[in-house]
Design a protein around this nucleic acid. Structure first.
Lengths: 151, 151
DNA sequence: GCCAGATCGTTCGTATACGAACGATCACCG
DNA sequence: CGGTGATCGTTCGTATACGAACGATCTGGC
């Protein structure tokens, strides 16, 4: 039975490799779904998850250099540069010179930024809830523990 | 004790929100690290993980329409369009007309594509191993189960 | 046989992501 | 003090990612 058209002597690891069995694929899928949920819930605020992350960090720290803000939110210098520029264009953040370092640029929230963030903050629980909806409480804790080890 | 400068009546959910506690953040970090590992191991092949995913699916299915290839690898029409175009430019895939549907474009591996994929396939185990290195065997299975539910 | 609606792939616009090279500045060491 | 190496932010080039609008084609129903 099961004639199986694949070569019988298939010792090539390639033969049994399936995209659907790979960690990277699972991570990507889950992250992609999370992003879609975020975008859906925040759509009328016109705020991406990276912009949100930057605003959250700014609210916590009041003022940080651009590169440090990138480091804290997991974006490299080139990436945070664009994210901050777009927030600045909408007057959600402002630039201040660093008196101690002429190279550095200090970023801070504007009141418009705080207001938008307050709004977003009220919905972020829904994003988490929808993202984790298929996952039980005990599993959520496992997930946290494992992903934190991996990051 | 603990004078805590924050408002004492702080019932605002915003006050306790920390980026580092969010699922989206963990997922992003883990995925980012995985991508860096992939890029490092495959660097001399000049192959991204999305290009790899496309080649893997093509090897499995021999020939698929472009949009279907995107669906199977988790890329939308606009994204797979660029990925396939870059593979075509390097002659790793070829285009064939679909005799049953003039709108459709069938994609298939070239021998160069197969050769490159064989090479990549020999290293992919290392990518998985490094990605999951901090995670024990039992946890790997938990991770798979949870992420699959979430995707 | 024809038309309305779905689907195929493209293109545009926008937003990450990140390596590399760059000029400006800083920090430290001798 | 002077120089060397590190760091700050920018810019360029490339690769995803995805919504939206588009022309071409297909499909089902009448």
């Amino acid at each position: 039975m099961k004639p199986d058209l694949r070569k019988l002597q298939g010792n090539d690891p390639a033969d049994s490799y399936r995209l659907e069995d790979q960690v990277g694929y699972w991570l990507r899928r889950a992250y992609q779904r999370h992003m879609a949920i975020f975008a859906g819930i925040m759509s009328d605020l016109d705020l991406t998850s990276m912009q949100f992350a930057a605003l959250v960090k700014l609210r916590e720290l009041k003022a940080v250099s651009q590169t440090e803000l990138g480091r804290l939110t997991g974006m490299d210098r080139a990436t945070i540069s664009g994210v901050v520029a777009r927030l600045k264009r909408r007057d959600l953040v402002l630039y201040k010179p660093d008196p101690l370092d002429k190279r550095s640029r200090i970023i801070a929230l504007t009141s418009a930024g705080e207001a938008l963030l307050t709004d977003a903050m009220q919905r972020i629980g829904g994003v988490t809830e929808q993202t984790l909806e298929p996952v039980g409480a005990a599993e959520r804790e496992s997930l946290r523990a494992i992903l934190q080890k991996m990051g």
